[in-house]
Design a protein around this nucleic acid. Structure first.
Lengths: 245, 245
DNA sequence: TAGTGGTCTAGACCACGAC
DNA sequence: TCGTGGTCTAGACCACTAT
C-alpha cells in the first residue's frame, strides 16, 4: 500500500520529525508490517518532496529507537514486533512523576533536613547543608508496593506537598527550568529490617528490591537523590536495552 | 589550548567518527574540561577543513553518548565529570562475554534439552523443541557471585564447552553472523530456594537478586534466554540512564 | 552488475537564548 | 541585536549486498 505519507511545510514541527512520527504511527497500527522494506531513501525523498538527508534523519531517529533496522545493499526494515515493544527504564519518570498521576501514591514526609553524609555525597553538597526530604508510599490495589525516599538540594525549587501530589516531582523540576540529563542507578536486594518490613507490610528478613539513584541536570548538577525499596512480589524492573552498534 | 584536532582523509574511518573519537579522547584526558565551550560548529568545521554537517554528526554522536550538551544561543559544552562516567547496562555484555575474560567463571552444564514451556515462549520455538542449555557459576575471590542459566535455540551455533570458555557467548554469537539488536530484561528479587541457596553458598530464604532476559538479533529472532540469580551482598546492577530529550 | 545505505559537501534560512 | 545551534537542500561518490 501507499501509506499516505506527507508533510506540512507550514507547520513549525520539523519535517524530519513529522515524517518520523508518521512512520512510527504506520508501524504501530500495522500498516508497515515487521520485516517489510521501507523502500529506498531517494525514492521516498522524491515522493515526499524532501531532500534525502531529511528523510535519512527521520529514518535514523527510528533506528535509534529500535523500530527500524538498516542493512546496506538490502534496505530499511521494520523490526519484528516482539523486539519493538517498550520503552526505556521506566523507574525514573515513574518515580518522579508519581504523585498526581497515580492516586495510589501518598506523601508521608515533606521537610527540610540537614544532609546526611550519604545524601551530601550524592548531591554534591556539604554535610549538614539543608536538603528537602520527601517520603512517599506507593500503593496498588490498596497494598503497599514501594517506599520512596527522595532528597533534593534545598532552594532548588518550591516543594510543598500540595503541588507535589498534584503535579509530581518531574514536572516540578521541569517547570523550575531544570533539564534532566542523566541518572546513575543501582539496583540490588537485601533483607528487610524491622521498620522497613513494617512500612511495606512484609515481615522482617523478607527480601526487598532496592534502587538508589542520583539524577543530574544538563549543567551537571545533582538535582535528586532517591533511595527506594520495593516489595518484590509486587514490583520488578522491566526494560528494554538497545545494543549500541 | 588548541587541542590539535585533525582528520586523516586517506583513512577508511569516517571523518565524523575520527573527529568524535578525538573529541572523546580530549574529554577523557581532561584537555576539554567540564563546562567548557567547544566553540561554534562553523568555525570548527573551517579549522578542520570539514563541512558543517560532518562536524555536527561528530558532535551529535557525543551528545547521544551523554558527553556533550548543546544549548541554543550558548554553544556546545562538555558535561561535568560526575555525570559522564559510565556505560550502558552492563549485564548483557557482562554475562554473555563472561567466560574467557574472567577466569572465575566456569561452565557447569552444557547440553541440548527439550524446551520447557517457559523457554519455548521466550525463544519463540515450540515446547519440546531442542534448545541449548548452558549453566555457569560466576566466582569472585573464590566465592560464588552468580548462577547464570542461558538457553539458545539449537542449531543457531556451535556451542562446545571449550569454545564457550575460551570465547564467551557474545563472540560466539557474533562470529556466527548474528547481530545483536536489543534485549528485554526484568530485574527482581526473591527468597532463595534450598537448591539455589546451596549453589550460591547462601542459606535458604535469604534474599536473591534475579534477572531474566531475552536477547533479539536484528532480524527479530530471539537468540538467547537467560535466567540468572545473584548474591545481593556481592552484586548489584549499576548503570547510567540518559534522558531522552 | 544493480541497488541499497553510508558518507560528505557547500551552501541557505530560521528559532531561540543571551545581552 | 547578535551568535548559537536547528533545520533543510541538491547534489556527489563510495562500500556493501545480493543476484
Amino acid at each position: 500500500m501507499s501509506l499516505a505519507l506527507g508533510v506540512d511545510r507550514s507547520s513549525p514541527v520539523p519535517l524530519y520529525y513529522q515524517l518520523a512520527q508518521q512512520l512510527e504511527a504506520a508501524i504501530e497500527r500495522g500498516a508497515l508490517t515487521p520485516g517489510s522494506l521501507l523502500g529506498n531513501e531517494i525514492e521516498l525523498a522524491a515522493r515526499l518532496g524532501l531532500s534525502r538527508p531529511t528523510v535519512r534523519q527521520a529514518i535514523q531517529s527510528l533506528v535509534d529507537k529500535g523500530l527500524l533496522v538498516r542493512r546496506r545493499g538490502v534496505g530499511t526494515q521494520v523490526v519484528h514486533s516482539q523486539v519493538r515493544r517498550p520503552l526505556e527504564l521506566s523507574s525514573l519518570y515513574d518515580d518522579l512523576e508519581a504523585a498526581g498521576q497515580r492516586p495510589s501514591s501518598s506523601v508521608l514526609v515533606n521537610t527540610v533536613v540537614p544532609a546526611s553524609a550519604e545524601a551530601a555525597a550524592a548531591l554534591g553538597v556539604a554535610e549538614g547543608d539543608e536538603v528537602h526530604r520527601v517520603e512517599r508510599l506507593r500503593l496498588t490495589h490498596g497494598e503497599p508496593m514501594a517506599y520512596l525516599v527522595n532528597q533534593l538540594p534545598a532552594g532548588l525549587l518550591d516543594l510543598d506537598t500540595g503541588r507535589l501530589e498534584a503535579t509530581g516531582l518531574y514536572r516540578l523540576l521541569r517547570s523550575a527550568g531544570i533539564t534532566l540529563h542523566s541518572a546513575r542507578q543501582s539496583i540490588g536486594a537485601r533483607a528487610a529490617s524491622a521498620p522497613e518490613a513494617e512500612r511495606l507490610g512484609e515481615s522482617e528478613g523478607s527480601p526487598l528490591l532496592t534502587m538508589e539513584r542520583v539524577t543530574f541536570d544538563d549543567t551537571g548538577r545533582a538535582v535528586e537523590f532517591g533511595t527506594h525499596t520495593y516489595r518484590p512480589s509486587r514490583y520488578s524492573f522491566e526494560f528494554q536495552l538497545l545494543v549500541r552498534s
